[in-house]
């Protein structure tokens, strides 16, 4: 494991995150009035998380079938307003069960 690379990566992450949080609070006195910029920033978290999740989620388990089961479970739980940990562990649980069943069948 290359710790120099890992530590550099962590430093970059921490530095960028801190600068983003610090600069406006420390410097800006005026509010942003540009509606496009405001709207763009409001949508960013959703587009980023969506692009990170799909289609990668399909490759996140032992095979495509169990991943689809896990995805379905996550969508179902999230749609019904369950919390982050419930959805995360619920989808993992569905994958686990699906993989055990596939293991027996195949």
């Amino acid at each position: 494991m290359n710790y120099t690379r890992i530590l550099t990566c962590i430093f970059i992450m921490a530095f960028v995150t801190y600068i983003i949080r610090m600069l406006p609070l420390a410097i800006f006195k005026k509010k942003i009035n540009n509606r496009f910029v405001k709207s763009f920033l409001a949508y960013v978290p959703y587009s980023v998380l969506a692009a990170m999740t799909f289609p990668e989620i399909l490759y996140s388990t032992a095979n495509l079938y169990s991943a689809c089961i896990g995805l379905a479970a996550a969508l179902f739980l999230a749609y019904h307003g369950r919390g982050l940990l419930t959805v995360a562990l619920g989808s993992a649980g569905a994958v686990f069960v699906a993989e055990q069943i596939l293991h027996v069948i195949v």
Binding site: L49, A62, S66, A73, A74, L75, L85
Partner: peptide, 16 residues
């Protein structure tokens, strides 16, 4: 291996 999906499940829980 089942937990590999957990992070994506969390993201789904945030956006849905």
């Amino acid at each position: 291996t089942a937990l590999g999906i957990a992070i994506y499940g969390m993201f789904i829980a945030i956006i849905i």
